[in-house]
Design a protein around this nucleic acid. Structure first.
Length: 320
DNA sequence: AACGACGTCAACCGCCCCTTG
DNA sequence: GCAAGGGGCGGTTGACGTCGT
């Protein structure tokens, strides 16, 4: 570390008895080791005292943050799985920016990580749509376009990787009133999602199916997804400004891709029809989609997000 | 190769709440 | 009841890596 950086990341503070340097900025390996060793020996908590006793020239807050967000052994690192992304969307719709509360339902994930995810990915999409993340338009987009597609990714990732970590360890979510009240059993839902590889069993077709009946576990809204034209039709009413933005314009006029849909079996595709109970949408089968290989979801390569390019690819390029 | 734009994420800041004396 | 300190939380910043030109 050069002198300039050293001076930038340190801060001289004085008290009645002594002067010492309070470090700021990135943690060094030595500091990490000191913190880990001290917590191993004495446990966490009382962070200000801990910082002093451990010989760290850091504030207690800084130590706490470093431990909770980075050093703690049960921290899970790496890309958020589709299941986790889905859960974040769902819980955020319930609780808003209660990051720590949301994080409590994603074992090994920190509030900071979830907050960063939301700001860097989800909010970015809202900005591109020129809508507020709290707007009804954006919620509708999440609910009827992205969440169903995330579920498809979950479904496919289970098909590709049956040993995906399951959510059975998720702590129960207390019952709460919510605009998304039908998601209240999210932990059960996601456990089911993780342990079964077929989603969107339409009640209408249930008796024809050899597959289990999940209707009690999957919220109604999850059993419904919308095509881009359907979504467009509905959100236009909510956000007239979209009319001029050509968000849903396809470069090929009647070509819509269903992300990952190619992974469905013929049987599943036959069952996989769109319902339209609350939105008054017309029923649409997957056969109406043009399925493209590029939409393949590859878990091994790191599914960092739902593939929102699925949506943005329809945008008129002249806007940029 | 160089440069700027953009994305990610660790870390800090400031506010608030809770506990303790 | 009140003040002080500790800790938790959401918002923000900035360093660094990556990508596109």
């Amino acid at each position: 570390m050069n002198v300039d950086h050293e001076s930038r990341v340190t801060k001289n503070i004085c008290n009645s008895n002594e002067e010492f340097e309070l470090r700021k900025g990135p943690w060094t390996l030595e500091e990490d080791n000191l913190l880990i060793q001290y917590i191993d020996a004495c446990g966490e908590g009382r962070w200000n005292a801990l910082a002093k006793c451990a010989g760290l020239k850091r504030t207690g807050k800084s130590c706490r943050l470093r431990w909770l967000n980075y050093l703690k052994p049960d921290i899970r690192r790496g890309n958020l799985t589709p299941q986790e992304q889905l859960l974040i969307l769902e819980l955020h719709s319930k609780w808003g920016n209660r990051w720590s509360k949301i994080a409590q339902n994603l074992p090994g994930r920190t509030d900071n990580e979830i907050k960063n995810y939301w700001r860097t990915r989800v909010q970015k999409q809202a900005r591109q749509l020129k809508v507020d993340t709290n707007s009804k338009t954006f919620l509708e987009t999440l609910k009827f376009y992205w969440m169903p597609r995330l579920l498809e990714k979950v479904d496919q990732s289970n098909a590709l990787m049956p040993t995906l970590p399951s959510f059975t360890a998720i702590s129960p979510i207390e019952n709460q009133d919510s605009t998304f009240s039908h998601f209240s059993k999210s932990h059960e839902i996601l456990s089911t999602i993780s342990s079964n590889s077929r989603l969107f069993q339409n009640n209408v077709h249930q008796e024809k199916s050899n597959l289990p009946n999940y209707s009690n576990n999957y919220p109604l809204e999850y059993q419904k997804t919308m095509s881009l034209p359907e979504l467009q039709e509905n959100v236009m009413e909510l956000s007239p400004s979209w009319k001029n933005n050509n968000y849903f314009n396809s470069t090929q006029s009647d070509c819509y891709s269903a992300p990952n849909a190619f992974a469905y079996t013929e049987e599943c595709l036959n069952q996989h029809t769109m319902t339209s109970s609350s939105m008054g949408c017309q029923e649409m089968s997957f056969s109406e989609y043009h399925i493209t290989q590029k939409d393949c979801f590859n878990y091994e390569q790191g599914a960092t997000f739902w593939n929102t390019d699925d949506l943005w690819q329809y945008r008129n390029t002249e806007e940029y």
